[in-house]
Structures are given as C-alpha cells and as structure tokens.
Write a protein that binds this DNA or RNA. Structure first.
Length: 609
RNA sequence: CGGGGCGUAGCGCAGUUUGGUAGCGCGCUUGCUUUGGGAGCAAGAUGUCGCAGGUUCAAAUCCUGUCGCCCCGACCA
C-alpha cells in the first residue's frame, strides 16, 4: 500500500471527545471516527488491524475444532422469552435494543447469541454421537450501554467473537473449557497483549465457572484483586478474602446510648472510642423481580466492610428464584420512606428494624428479607443503630435481636485483605480491561430451549453448554492502551496495520525514490505487510506520522540513498541502524517472523491442545 | 437515572458576564523559496455560532424549549 492512496488524515491535537490515551491516539491517527455516542466507524487503518485480530482468532478457534458460522443480529423476542431473558434484557437497565417490525412483532438486536445458537443446536443435534460440537462467529454485537465510554472500550455496537460449545456431559464441557482457556491465552499472546486470567462473576449470562481475561491497564474499568504468588486472581465483583480480624467488644448489658448527630460509623466510633469492626451497618435495598411487587431487603455488614452488590444480587436471585429473574437491585432512598408516620432514622438503623418500617412505600410489599454477612454474623457483641434518632445500641450478640437472618458472603474483598488460600498472602489491586470471558453454562439454556440429545443409554438429556467471548474491537484498543508513548501508538507486529513503513525522506530525489520502490517490491515479494510513504511531504511530517500510526518498523531512504544506504528503526526503540539496502531483508525477516508470534513461546505452536 | 460541563470553519479554541452583526492557531487552496522530526513568506477560500421559538431597532451573546456530545456518580446509613 502507498500512503498516497491511503487518505491519511491525522490530527495534530488530541480530540476533545477522547479521555484515555488509546482513544486519543486512535482518533488522531485516523483509525476511528465517532458517528454517535458509542458508535464508531472503523477507518481503513483500523479495519486492517481488526482483520488481523480476527485472523488470529480464526486460526486459534479452528485449531481446537470450532466451526465458524454467522448468526443473525436481528432476533425474535419469542426466542428470548423462552430462555426467560427478554424481560431482564429489555426492561429496566436492560441492554438489548428492541423494536417492532411492520407486523408488530417484537425483535431485538443481539447483544449475545445463546438463544439463537441453542435453538439451532436443538434442531440439529439428536445424538450423543454428534457431540461435542462448538460453533463460533465474528460478528457485530449491539448493547444499549448505560454509559458508552472510551471509544471502542465500551461501545454500543462492537465486534465480538463468540463461541458456544455443546457436550454430552459435564466432564466433556470441563475438558473443552480447558482447551478454550489455552486457545484464548494463545490469541492474546499473538496479539501482543499482557493479559491476566481471573476468576469472574457469571453475571446475566449465568452458569457455573467463569474466567475473565484482563488486559492490564490503568484505564481499565475493572478492578482485579490478585496475590503476589500468582495463585489467586479475581475480579473484585467475585473476589473472596479473609476480612481483617475484628477488635473484640465485650457487651455486658443490652442497652441504648445517646449518639447525638452521630449518623456515620466514623462519628460513632470517634465519639465513643470504638473501632469500626465493633459495629455493624444496615443497608436497605429494593429488589425488582419479573413476577410480583418489589422485595425489600435488609443487609447487615460489619462496620468496616463494604457491600458487593454483585454478590448480593446473586444471593437474592438464588433465594428468590421462584420470583423469576432479578431485574434490578437498588438502594432504597431511605430519607423518603415513612416509618410509623415519621421518617426512618437514617444513620441510626439497626438489624432489627421492624418489617413495617417500609410498609406503605409504593411498589414494596412484604417484610424484609434479612441477610447478614459473616463478618457481622460472627461478632459476639457489637454496636448498631437503635432504630431511633440519635440512639445506638450495644447488643450482646445476635440472640438479643430475636430475628432470623440468612447468612451469606456479600462483602466486597478489598486490596490489603489476606488471601483465603494463604493467610500470609495479601491481595493487591490492579486495573484491567476485560478482553475475553469464558463460561461453563451448564444446562440453563439447553433446558429452557429444549436442546436435548439421545444418550448412549437411550435416554434424553439437555446438552451441557459453554460459551466463550472475545471483544475483538476492544482488544484492538486495549493493545494501544498497553503500547504507546508520547509520539503515538506502538502496535504489536501481529496486529499492526502495517509491519513496515518505508519513509522516503525527500521524494524529489530520484535515487531515493528508485531505492525505496525497489525495497517496497522486495518486501512485498517476501510477504511483508509494507506501507510506502511516497507522499509529497517534508521528512519531518512523515516521521511524525510514522510514529503516530505506530508501525513497528521504519525504513528510511534518505541522504545515503545515492550509495545504497538506508536506515532501520524499530518504533519501540531509540537506536537507528544504518545499513546497505541489500542487507535489509536478511536482517529484518527473521525478526519479523519472531515478532509475528507476539509473546507466544516458540514451542507452543497453535495446534496441539 | 442523578449531578456537572460543552455545542462557534475540517481539528483545537477565544468571543457570551456588559446585545451592536464573528475571530485566533493548526489544517486547506495558489505561488515562490525551502527540503532529515509536524518549514518560511505572500495571497486566498471556508460559518444557518447545534436546532426551534421568543424578547429587542439589533441576539453567538438575554429568555424558553429541544437535540446532541463529554465527564462524574449510582455512594454513605
């Protein structure tokens, strides 16, 4: 490709719309253009990158026997009603774009494809002899995100590789999940990404085990907690840890005491010489389900702990499974709730807050579902709110409250917490960009959509399923987030828009032009992805653009051209290597071949599993 | 959804407080000179000031509505 023909439009200043480096550089380099919030055009340079990522993904998926197909983005609501996800995905905070066609039929734009693929599998697969099978596709996904952000990082339309596997038993699902894990590691290595595999919450997809692949970066939206020994890493949504030990509190009598204006744990502790671990806090939530009115929820944690709403939502979904899927979980606006005709004593609530405290609130029916985290449940004596303004209570234990609670881990693990696998090890926090996620789904979808097969023994059973995603467009931007400097992007060779750029320093010099054209032909003949910068621009402009675009190798044909001399420079390095033109190929080719593998080790070629 | 900010030339911005009919830098076009890290000089082109109403002799500026974009938050008890 010649730069003359590339319609290269680069910007000198960072665009106002972009916050993080990768977004700024992609816009400045002319890789992407915003069309609407969270919706981007992939310009020719970006499209080259995306096609390279897709090619790597294809090779690795094909290598583990997955079958590529293409499923529709436009999907009938009926299919989603059968899996029970239409309401969760369209109502409330739902992320599915939905519409009606001219006949009034409801349709959705696919945010994911479990329903479609499972119904196809149900049609096609009759016998255990056909299993296992894995389908995958590279496709545009649509998600009506609450807040699209950071360019391609969280878009409303984006490219995703999704794969779905079907198995006769759980053992085979586990085996295939393992080979998918390995395939993912190879994909990310070949793309030149530094990725950490972490335990993850399954979220709205559901299922048992799940693992996320995090590209480590400051701009990441996820918090990862990991131990230095490499034995534990998890998304904070999912992470478990040992809480700090509580300071013992001896409570001899069950009594209330005055805490005027002390509506926070901090204030109570300061005024009465207490430690936050000697107190408990009470949180009120409203849980909305597909069936029936909203459920009030009262959650108790030790005073120094934070609630993890993902864990809490999972617990509620399990405890109230008969109410249908959990649509929303939000904090109750306590200030507006009536309590016995007056307002609730905010800041002075106790675990034994009466069931009728929130009655009369629109949409809320029934008494509290009371949940207590082990950090609070294990306290012998503690201080809590007395359910009266400016009053707290010393409680000599849970028996004094005479109420039953469901005990469940709903606390958020924090950096600095000790690890469960080794109480000497401590969790540290890093930020990550979720570029891949693999799930063992189990039989949730196959049961709902009657995707069954005949077993060897003659019975009929729902298939075991796994699903596996890679955010292709997000991955490409994450690569920039991990690889850039003050002058622009530094693409890993495996996914760079071009591997080499030949910069003609002065296009009016015949020797330079002739030599550059010769090298251009040689490199192309050798299978190198090369850009010839033959534009009528000054050398400085071309150097700046080459750096901005992040092409990993730069060959300069300039002042030494007359005697056949050129320069070679790696985008990531400072040094410039002078050499004679004929030496370029023998020098560069072996290096390129190595770099095309990314960080994939020489031995572990992408075939065996 | 709540809070904050912003829409003025292709890009980045000033001008809005105090109303007087639109400007700067970069980019773009033409010419000359220059030619290894975003060149210099000269001459030029480019705007329904997001949109729609209203107030006024007069609106980018004031008022009302509306659309769009960005950021923060969805916490504490």
């Amino acid at each position: 490709m010649r730069a003359q023909d590339l319609l290269l439009v680069t910007l000198r200043e960072p665009p106002a719309e972009a916050e993080i480096p990768s977004h700024q550089w992609l816009v400045r380099g002319g890789f992407i253009r915003r069309v609407a919030s969270g919706i981007y055009a992939y310009m020719p340079l970006m499209w080259r990158v995306l096609r390279k990522v897709e090619a790597i993904v294809r090779e690795e998926m094909d290598a583990i026997g997955a079958l590529e197909l293409r499923l529709p983005a436009l999907q009938p609501a009926e299919l989603w009603r059968r899996s029970g996800r239409w309401d969760t995905y369209t109502a409330g905070e739902g992320i599915m774009f939905s519409l009606r066609d001219r006949q009034g039929r409801e349709l959705g734009l696919g945010p994911t494809h479990e329903e479609v693929v499972t119904s196809l599998a149900a049609d096609l697969i009759r016998s255990y002899r056909q299993l296992p099978v894995c389908f995958y596709q590279l496709q545009t996904k649509f998600r009506d995100e609450i807040r699209p952000r950071f360019g391609l990082m969280r878009g409303r339309e984006f490219i995703m590789k999704d794969a779905y596997s079907f198995h006769a038993d759980e053992e085979d699902l586990r085996r295939y999940y393992g080979s998918m894990d390995q395939a993912y590691r190879r994909v990310f290595a070949r793309c030149g990404l530094k990725v950490l595999a972490v335990q993850a919450d399954s979220g709205a997809i559901g299922g048992a085990a799940s693992q996320e692949f995090m590209a480590m970066a400051e701009a990441g939206e996820d918090l990862v907690l990991s131990s230095a020994d490499g034995r534990y890493a998890a998304n904070q949504e999912r992470a478990q840890s040992l809480p700090p030990p509580a300071a013992p509190l001896k409570v001899t009598a069950d009594e209330c005491f005055a805490t005027p204006g002390q509506a926070t744990i901090e204030a109570v502790c300061a005024a009465h010489n207490l430690h936050p671990t000697q107190t408990v806090k009470v949180l009120l939530h409203r849980a909305s389900f597909a069936d029936g009115p909203d459920q009030p929820v009262l959650t108790v944690l030790r005073g120094d702990q934070e609630v993890n709403t993902v864990k809490l939502a999972n617990v509620l979904g399990r405890l109230l499974a008969e109410r249908g899927p959990l649509l929303a979980l939000e904090r109750l606006e306590v200030d507006t709730l009536p309590a016995h005709g007056a307002q609730l004593p905010v800041g002075f609530l106790g675990p034994d807050l009466a069931d009728d405290a929130v009655q009369g609130t629109p949409g809320l029916v029934g008494g509290f579902l009371r949940i207590v985290d082990p950090t609070a449940a294990d306290l012998a004596g503690f201080v809590c709110g007395a359910n009266a303004p400016d009053q707290h209570r010393r409680a000599p234990g849970w028996r004094a409250l005479a109420l039953s609670f469901t005990r469940a881990d709903v606390r958020s693990a924090q950096p600095g917490d000790r690890c469960r696998h080794d109480s000497e090890a401590v969790l540290t926090a890093t930020r990550g960009i979720e570029v891949g996620h693999i799930f063992q789904l189990g039989r949730k979808y196959s049961s709902a959509l009657a995707a069954c097969f005949n077993t060897e023994g003659g019975g009929t059973e729902p298939m075991w399923m796994g699903c596996y995603g890679i955010g292709v467009s997000r991955l490409a931007q994450a690569a920039v987030e991990q690889n850039h400097d003050d002058n622009g992007m530094i693409w890993p060779v495996g996914i760079a828009p071009f591997e080499v750029v030949i910069t003609v320093a002065n296009g009016e010099e015949q020797e330079q032009r002739r030599l550059a054209e010769g090298l251009y032909g040689e490199l192309r003949a050798a299978g190198v992805d090369v850009l010839l910068d033959d534009r009528v621009e000054r050398a400085g402009v071309k150097f700046k653009d080459a750096d901005l675009l992040g092409i990993p190798w730069r060959v300069v044909v300039g002042r030494n051209a007359a005697r056949g001399g050129i320069e070679l420079k790696a985008r990531s390095a400072r040094e410039v290597l002078d050499m004679d033109a004929p030496r370029l190929l023998p020098h560069l080719l072996p290096r390129l071949q190595r770099q095309r593998r990314g960080s994939l080790p020489e031995t572990g070629s992408g075939v065996e599993v």
